[in-house]
Amino acid sequence: MSVATTQISVQGSEPVFHVIDEHDHPEGASTMLGFWIYLMSDCLIFAMLFATYGVLGGNYAAGPAPKDLFDLKLVALNTTMLLLSSITYGFAMLTMEKSKIGQTQLWLAITGLFGLAFLGIELTEFAHMIHEGATPQRSAFLSSFFTLVGTHGLHVTFGLVWLVTLMVQTARFGLTTANRRRLMCLSMFWHFLDVVWIGVFTFVYLLGMLR
């Protein structure tokens, strides 16, 4: 601030409206903050979907209710998969900081397998529900259920695509600064999806069974 004022007083005739001694930002310096803000906007999307489910979740249209559809054992298994994938990604980050490329790749692969298991179980559940006639068209409850849980599943799917992409990148170019930054972004994305899942299993499944 003081610099700008000095500039004005020195030059006199031409006013300066910005601080000219802007320190240089190294490449990618603002990526993590920018990605965090993207995650926050994603958080708003999920908040809207939760609100929709909260409003419509009781409108069964004489169709099946949560108690008829949900299998808590399956949901518990699913939650375990996602939780385990979170900690294995954490291990991948720790080995990345030690620049152990082989171990990092191994932990990333394990994370991907847990993520794949999560998706498989979720798709099995969806297929089972649709087979029983509980399709998204059946009631407002099911429409909002499939939108909310499906959006989360879609995020996990894209997370897996991203994970595989980064594993290929790391295999080809090593743990470069750019690849480390990308892996850290995916780490935030992955842990963020786990946080959203806490909301899903609490509001949709557990409170649904209590209804």
Partner: peptide, 24 residues
């Protein structure tokens, strides 16, 4: 951005296992 340590990851994992198991 901040980083974690092995200890902090394990504490977080332990806590979240307990906090998931109890409601289920």
């Amino acid at each position: 951005a901040a980083h974690g340590s092995l200890k902090s990851y394990l504490i977080g994992f332990g806590l979240s296992v307990v906090l998931t198991a109890i409601p289920f």
